[in-house]
Nucleic acid binder design. Structure first.
Lengths: 231, 231, 231, 231
DNA sequence: TATGAATGAGTTTTCATTCAT
DNA sequence: AATGAATGAAAACTCATTCAT
């Protein structure tokens, strides 16, 4: 009944392929199976929450069966945790590309805010999973190794920007970097995480391109006004 | 097993009620029964989410039985919706007490932000329920009648403040009131809704009194800097 | 919430009515209440079956409350039985009007068949309740006093017709009256009782006027051909 | 509590099956599991009706658990529908064995009526299920694919008989085949479906062998008299 | 490595009936 | 005579997980 994987892989008629090992087309590819499960699970958990997601629903959208899900991830919770791990890993990869230390403090701050904005705006799954984690008291994310490291990195970036801005007489000197991070996160996160109630309340979809652009500018503006040295 | 009766009967502070004694304990009191169920359900849904909450668990902490829950609210979803309705109604009631129109624009804005901050800081159940609603795409809150009205009220308040501030030469004239509301909400909501992941990431509990006070000042500061006219 | 009875009875403003006793407009009229419950119950049981009918649904469509239903009829089964009793009583009343003994045997037979046809065609509730009773092994109808008597009457009518028809050389002499009754009933009952599956199977609704007329003629024809003496 | 295994394994009459021994008892046999559930459900639904039947009661008499019932049939209604489908399929299969087109029209008609009589007389479950379906307005049978096809077949058989009988000068030419089918069905169905009320009313059990034989002859006689050309 | 069948414990919901006023 | 609130027992259905192949 479920032979999706076969259908996806055209019959090779016994002819040996020229890619010797690690061939993506070989019949049993544990890595690909795992990745497939993880991808589907990410969607399902982020759409339905940990309790709301159904193991059957995940398995059904997979190229494999429910049994494999347990084979690789042990339990529903194990799978959920693997999803969290993957999602946090993805961010790290992206953040490497931001080289704010090479920019002027104001421009660097703008770049950081814009990056944060864009990331949240695009990675709705990430935003939802964070939300879901908070409903569960963050008890699963605590076990994710990459989690703490990722946040330390951001704080270092902010500390560097603040220090250079203060030195250049551009920024106020009384700002706590973690507080500033919280402020930036709040502005970028809320409009994505709560866009449904926002949309219902005001008849405006915050993800509409025009609104998105305006919010982006507003948030950059608000942050710069906040850090900028008076007079 | 059933010690919810205390919670169900609000402390009267020794003030004698005008209803004859023992009246509050009469067996047939539909309003009290409903309120009791609603109170317990609010805690359970906000703690566990819609799918995570258990009807049995709610009933157990109630003065009555599971059957009455269905008698009055029809279904688990019906009860959840009644909880949303109640919670949104509660805010509205409180907001009436804020008379910002009588204050100087800057002071009024400060008062509004402080109220918003305090409300979110104290009403964690509300924050969690909004979060939960967003996981469900706001489909239940859409059916809550009091929902849209409540939000219009806030926008009117902000419009009034902005208009008066612009007239007095204190505020910028290019700010959209709904955008500003979003900005304020973001700052007040995020630190409560995502306090668990924040705490895990930075080892700081945003609900600690010292941090709370600092955040409150920071947010007021950020909003005022944002709305203030330059120069 | 349910003041249908009030609405139905215009306020008399304290003016004494000229009907002294048994006034249908007095506030508490047990007979009317019982009749009302019975009427609603007849519809509900015939529409849903004994197990399918819901006491709540019956009560809701009544001018009174569920409690009264138990007050007067004791239980769901008691009410069902009362419905059976009423329905069988109704037939008896109608059958009195048939005076086939005054007619020529052939015409009398025709009249009997037409009466039977028309009765089943119009009294769908009756047909359905008989059907329902058979699903329950006729165990409730057994306790209905009017039941057996009614059937004896029909058999007597048929016996009379057959005897006179045989004497007149019009009818065959080898027909058992109960068998003939069964034959007539079959033809009149089936097209009503099973009209839904029939309609679905052949895209024809047997209750359509044109089809009704044709069936009526066909059934009379079939019965007369069956009883008529050959050549 | 579970002695359904006998009923579930049809008597093989000592004929060795071509599958190795003990094979029928292997633990994983989805087809047998489904058949077993379906068989038990047929009895339960026909005995108790759709609403009267209990999923637990069905499961208990099964070789498996309630869970499997949902695994294979989705819901109580789904199971009921599967039962309808099976039961209608069974008739079709049997009807194929009747080769009335090879018989003289009168003999063919007699064979058809006798087959119809015998089928209804023996397959009480079928009769009851049709009755039950009509209580539900035939809404479940409408979704059964095999339903309409089955009925078309019978009509074709009747059309063929009528045409040949007319050509041979044996039958009247003014008979509608669907009407005739209704007439035959009425006579064969009613005495089975309503045998309980009939028995109660007249103290005669229509399923008694002697009565059965007489009814059979009577019905054949009535139908032949109806179709036969006069004079 | 992979799979479809199977399951026990739990979860929501329904129902006829009775209680207190 | 009449009523709305209340209820226990049972019913349908769901879920994460494991077994046999």
């Amino acid at each position: 009944m479920k032979k999706g994987s076969k259908a996806a892989e055209p019959d090779t008629n016994g002819i040996p392929s020229d890619t010797p090992r690690g061939d993506a087309r070989r019949k049993y590819d544990p890595e690909q199976t795992k990745r497939n499960i993880l991808d589907v699970a990410t969607q399902e958990f982020s759409a339905m929450g940990l309790t709301g997601a159904r193991v059957d629903a995940i398995a059904e959208r997979t190229n494999t069966t429910k049994r494999m899900l347990y084979y690789y991830f042990g339990s529903k919770e194990g799978l959920y945790q693997a999803v969290l791990e993957k999602v946090y890993g993805d961010i790290r990869a992206l953040e490497q590309d931001l080289h704010v230390s090479e920019l002027d403090p104001v421009e660097g701050m703008r770049a950081l805010v814009e990056f944060t904005f864009d990331y949240h705006d695009r990675q709705r799954d990430f935003v939802r999973l964070v939300t879901i984690e908070n409903i569960h008291g963050a008890k699963y994310v605590e076990q994710v190794k990459t989690f703490k490291g990722r946040n330390v990195t951001v704080i270092h970036t902010i500390e560097d920007l603040l220090a250079r801005g203060i030195a250049a007489g551009q920024f106020r000197s009384d700002i706590d970097p973690i507080d500033l991070h919280l402020l930036i996160s709040s502005l970028c996160f809320h409009r994505v995480g709560n866009r449904h109630t926002f949309g219902t309340a005001f008849g405006r979809d915050p993800s509409h391109p025009r609104l998105r652009a305006r919010h982006r500018a507003m948030i950059v503006d608000a942050v710069l006004r906040f850090v900028r040295k008076d007079g």
